[in-house]
Amino acid sequence: MSVAREPEDQELLRRAATGDREAFAALFRRHRHAVYRFALNMSGSHATAEEVTQEVFMTLIREPDSYDPNRGSVAAFLYGIARNHVLRVRKREWRFAGLPDGEGDPDSAVWAAEDSTIRDLIRDEEALAVRKAILSLPPVHREVVVLCELEELSYAQAADILGCAIGTVRSRLHRARQSLRRTLESLLEGDRKRREAPEAG
């Protein structure tokens, strides 16, 4: 018995470009959550993640021929668009918001202020601290942590998405993890002190 094979991304993209709605929907459903999570983890904002996800797939609607198979997989192409959009949105928000006046990265503040589903998901302090620590990383380190640790992609897949060598991904992740560890220790230590303070008083 033969098993029906799902169409490849490239095939779906080709069909979507000819106006095949189902092909576009299938491609979207296959990648939507990954693109959304990537944008969310990079920005710390659901609004940004939603905007970015929409823009990524709008690019496919507007410019279906913009994908070049010689330059990598469709997934890498989508992540690449998402990455550019996140940076653009963050720049725009920084321009309007100005410099942070509170403690820490403004991204962390955005994340901490999230009101809906993610707050339900991140119930414990450790998870929230991890998110804050990731958002405190510079974007080049943040993206390798998001891809290799949170999305659990291989170095090769991350290199494909980021358009760099596997060795670069490895060394960035090495540095990012060390930085992450220090930040996490500091955040968790801070939480511990805050918890203990009322008892002492």
Partner: peptide, 25 residues
Amino acid sequence: LRRAAHQNRQVRAPVRIEENLLRAF
């Protein structure tokens, strides 16, 4: 980080994005 990845996998894109995109399509 593995615990965070596990939680991360539960994050879903809102349904309205699909509706908006299919309308745009």
